[in-house]
Amino acid sequence: MTTRMIAGSRWLPAVSTCFALAVGLGLGAGPLQGEDDTATRPRSAAPRGEAQTFPDAFAAAVAPGLYGRRLAGQSVALVTLPGADAVVVKALTDEIVAAGGSVASRTDVTAGLTAPGQKVLVDTFGTQLAEQVPGVVDPAATTYPRIGRLVAAAVATSGAAGPASAGAATIRRSLVAGSLISDPGTAGVAPLVLVVAGADLDDAIASGLVSGLAAGAHGVVVTAPTKAADLAAVREGAPTAATVDGSETAAGRVASVLALVRQISGGGGSFGASGIDGAVPLG
């Protein structure tokens, strides 16, 4: 393992507790009152009109201290699923940078890969591509873990970040040619993967895809809108991945980046608005 490990900075328990409390108030909090704060609106908050909920404003304000630049020197591959909100994707990218990290690549998974009616095509394509790049995929892998592992080979690494190898570039071009992914940006490989979910997917597809990604990356975090149905299936099929719901809120996005920090040293978990392990990973 050559992934660079970052020593955790000191945490301020009082600030951490307040942050978790603020997230927990989300459903009941109303908008902040007062004059227009456009000029001073915290970076973490996605545009939502002229007012923010208190948890979002609080999360945006404390995020820099919570991050402590603990993603410094770390590279993240951004993978979006169909229905992912472009505003949320941009805000998450900004949060990664604010924590000291960088985005090595962005890959948009298409409905051609995730639609249940496309399973035969995905299975055939994945089988043929796996045969062309022997040693990447477990021969016993089924349809969606197989295609997830191939996507991982194109964007992720269990070692150090760097430019895509010839093999990774070949797989990426093949997936693009098969209309299973689109490539809106520079391609590189990264040890950390942030999957941004949107519309609900079939459980087997979501679970298999993420388990395949997790098999080829050092760490994976899946972030989704509040109470997203996919996350339970992802946790069952890919227990090493971390899940966070509430990506439409600043609090959820901050929790997503802290989950990436946690993945540096390993560890799954369920966090966010409905997280069974707490609102935010504090360890």
Score class of each variant (00 low, 15 high):
residue 172 R to M: 02
residue 32 L to G: 01
residue 156 A to E: 06
residue 93 T to K: 15
residue 98 A to E: 09
residue 83 G to Y: 15
residue 163 P to W: 01
residue 125 F to N: 03
residue 171 I to R: 04
residue 120 V to P: 00
residue 212 G to T: 05
residue 48 R to W: 06
residue 144 Y to G: 03
residue 125 F to R: 05
residue 88 V to C: 11
residue 11 W to L: 14
residue 120 V to W: 03
residue 221 V to A: 06
residue 58 F to D: 06
residue 12 L to Y: 13
residue 2 T to C: 03
residue 151 V to N: 04
residue 65 G to R: 15
residue 119 K to D: 08
residue 70 R to V: 10
residue 279 A to P: 09
residue 281 P to V: 11
residue 121 L to F: 14
residue 136 V to N: 02
residue 79 V to P: 13
residue 51 A to E: 15
residue 76 V to Q: 07
residue 89 V to W: 13
residue 220 V to K: 07
residue 75 S to W: 00
residue 219 G to Q: 04
residue 164 A to Q: 08
residue 7 A to K: 11
residue 199 A to F: 13
residue 28 G to Y: 11
residue 119 K to T: 15
residue 35 E to L: 10
residue 223 T to Y: 02
residue 133 V to S: 07
residue 35 E to T: 11
residue 38 T to D: 13
residue 27 L to M: 10
residue 188 G to N: 14
residue 185 G to P: 03
residue 148 G to N: 05
residue 157 T to S: 06
residue 217 A to F: 03
residue 200 D to M: 07
residue 214 A to H: 00
residue 99 A to D: 01
residue 38 T to S: 15
residue 232 A to R: 10
residue 20 A to H: 00
residue 261 V to T: 14
residue 194 L to G: 05
residue 111 A to I: 09
residue 164 A to L: 04
residue 159 G to W: 04
residue 6 I to G: 06
residue 143 T to Y: 02
residue 78 L to T: 07
residue 25 L to S: 08
residue 111 A to H: 12
residue 42 P to F: 04
residue 87 V to D: 15
residue 197 A to P: 01
residue 265 S to G: 13
residue 157 T to R: 03
residue 263 Q to M: 05
residue 81 L to H: 09
residue 73 G to N: 07
residue 193 V to R: 06
residue 263 Q to P: 03
residue 220 V to Y: 06
residue 23 V to D: 00
residue 35 E to Q: 11
residue 200 D to Q: 14
residue 123 D to V: 00
residue 124 T to S: 13
residue 212 G to S: 07
residue 162 G to N: 03
residue 191 P to L: 02
residue 233 A to P: 01
residue 68 G to A: 15
residue 140 A to S: 15
residue 206 A to G: 03
residue 99 A to Y: 00
residue 218 H to R: 11
residue 59 A to N: 10
residue 63 A to C: 08
residue 105 S to L: 05
residue 132 Q to S: 13
residue 196 V to R: 05
residue 263 Q to R: 11
residue 11 W to E: 08
residue 69 R to W: 04
residue 174 S to P: 02
residue 180 L to A: 02
residue 196 V to A: 12
residue 217 A to C: 00
residue 222 V to D: 02
residue 75 S to Q: 11
residue 144 Y to D: 07
residue 80 T to Y: 08
residue 79 V to L: 12
residue 104 A to H: 01
residue 254 V to P: 12
